[in-house]
Design a protein around this nucleic acid. Structure first.
Lengths: 234, 234
DNA sequence: TGTATTTTATTTGTCGACAAGAATATTAGA
DNA sequence: TCTAATATTCTTGTCGACAAATAAAATACA
C-alpha cells in the first residue's frame, strides 16, 4: 500500500508543476513502480512532492484521458489495470500500427530521420550484445517510435506511442529473460527495415514490419504462457 | 471576441462540474460555435457557468489531451486550429480506420450491434430524403461509430472517434450544400456495408469501406476546392 | 513622430480551506 | 454474538485568494 516515490524533489519553476507530476507518475506507471490497481493518494503525493493538490489533479486528468489511470467518481483514482481478457485487440492494433508507420516512413523519411533511426539501432544492438533486457525493451521502443516519427502522421504516432507504452507495461510484467537467439534476430530484422525505408521500398517495409510485429506478439504470448501467475484478470 | 455560450445554467450536482464544462466546450468546438483560434477565457467561462476556475481548468486539460484545445504556457488557451497543410495525414488515417473498423465489425458483430447499425441507417436515410445536411453529417458519423463499436477494439474506436470529430469540424467549415446524387449513393453504400457485416464477409466489408472512405475524402476535397476562402492556414 | 523603457493591468498557475460523499468505526438493538 | 443504525474519519470536488508571468498602457527619450 506504500508505493513510495522516493525521489529528491528538485527545484521547480512556476508553470512546470503539472508537467512535473505527470512525468513522474507516467514513468512510475510504465515501469510498474506503481503496479496496475495501485491507488493514487492525492494528499500523499502532494506532501511528497511538496505542492498543492491542484496541479496533481490536473496531471491525473491528463493521465486518465490517456488511459493510464482510472478515476471513479468521488472515489480514489488508481493505476489502470491491464485488460488481459482482450489482449488480442492490443496485439491487433499494435501490428497494424507497426505496418502503417513503417510504410509511411519508407515514403516520407528524410536523411535526418534515417540518421536518428540508425543511431537507435546502434544503441539497440549494443543492448543485445550486453544482454541488457531492460535497455533492449526501451531502445526497441525508441527505434520504432523514431520510424513512426519519420512517417509524419500525428494520428498514427499518437496511437502507436500509446500502444508502445502499454506494451512496455506488459513486457515488464512478463519478461524473465530473453531467448538468446531471438534478440539477434530482431537486430537483423531491424537492419532489413532500415534498408527498406532508406530505399523507399514501401511494399518491403510493410512486409518486414508485419513479420516483425508477429514475432514480437508471439514472443509476448510465450512470456505469458511461461508465466501463469495471473489466471484471468488484473 | 465575444464567443458567448448563452445557455441556461442548469442545477449541477457535486462531481459533475468538470464533465459539465467539458461537454459544453466540446460541443461548441465541434459545432464551430467556438471557431478554431478562439481564445478561451477561464474567468469569463467561470462567471458564465457560475463555478470556480478549478473544474474549468481540469476540463481544459482534458480537451487539450484530445487535441481540441491548445494551451500555451502562461498564456491563454485557444481552440485548436485545423492543420490544412497536412490534411492528407487526416484523410489517410480516416480511410484506414474506416477499413479496419468495418472489417472488425464483419468479424465480431452481434445481432444487437446489427440492430443499432440498421436503426442509424434508417435515420440517415430519412435525413437524406429530407435533404437535411447537418443531420446527415451527424447521423453518418453515428452510423460509422456504431460499426466501429461492433468491431470492439477500443484502440481503434478511440482514434476513429477522434478522427470523426475532426471531420465534423472540417465539414462544418466547408459544406455549402450536397450534390443531389451523392447522398443517395451513400445510402446505397451503407446498405452494402451492412449486408457485408451481416454476412461476416470481411473482404467485402473492407473493400466497401475503402471505397466509401475514398468517396468521402473526395467530397471533402471538392468542398474545399469550391470554397477557397481560406488560403493556407487557419 | 517613432522607439525604448517603465508602470500598470490582466491572466495564469498554485495554494490552503471547506463542505459533500464515501468508507470506516462505533454504538444500539435483537 | 450478530446485524442495523448512527457517528466519525477520510477523501474528493470545489472555492476564493494570491503571487508569478505576461500583455497592455504610459511615459521617457531620441
Amino acid at each position: 500500500m506504500d508505493n513510495n516515490l522516493m525521489r529528491p524533489v528538485p527545484e521547480r519553476k512556476r508553470g512546470q508543476g503539472v508537467k512535473f507530476v505527470y512525468e513522474i507518475l507516467r514513468d512510475d506507471i510504465l515501469d510498474l513502480v506503481l503496479p496496475p490497481g495501485s491507488p493514487i493518494d492525492e494528499i500523499q503525493l502532494a506532501e511528497r512532492l511538496s505542492m498543492s493538490r491542484t496541479p496533481i489533479r490536473e496531471a491525473l486528468v491528463k493521465l486518465a484521458s490517456e488511459g493510464l489511470v482510472t478515476t471513479l467518481p468521488n472515489r480514489s483514482t488508481m493505476v489502470s489495470n491491464i485488460d488481459f481478457l482482450n489482449l488480442h485487440t492490443f496485439f491487433d492494433a499494435l501490428s497494424l500500427m507497426y505496418r502503417v508507420t513503417t510504410r509511411l516512413a519508407a515514403e516520407n523519411r528524410t536523411e535526418e530521420d534515417l540518421e536518428i533511426i540508425r543511431n537507435l539501432q546502434i544503441k539497440f544492438t549494443k543492448a543485445v550484445q550486453a544482454q541488457d533486457a531492460l535497455t533492449m525493451i526501451a531502445t526497441n521502443r525508441d527505434f520504432h517510435a523514431a520510424i513512426a516519427e519519420a512517417g509524419k502522421n500525428p494520428y498514427y504516432t499518437g496511437l502507436f506511442f500509446r500502444l508502445l507504452d502499454e506494451g512496455r507495461r506488459i513486457l515488464r510484467i512478463y519478461y524473465s529473460s530473453f531467448d538468446d537467439q531471438l534478440p539477434k534476430r530482431y537486430v537483423a530484422e531491424h537492419d532489413d527495415m532500415i534498408a527498406a525505408i532508406e530505399a523507399h521500398d514501401v511494399a518491403s517495409a510493410d512486409k518486414l514490419a508485419a513479420q516483425h510485429a508477429d514475432q514480437i506478439v508471439i514472443q509476448i504470448q510465450q512470456f505469458m504462457a511461461r508465466d501463469r501467475r495471473r489466471p484471468i484478470d488484473l
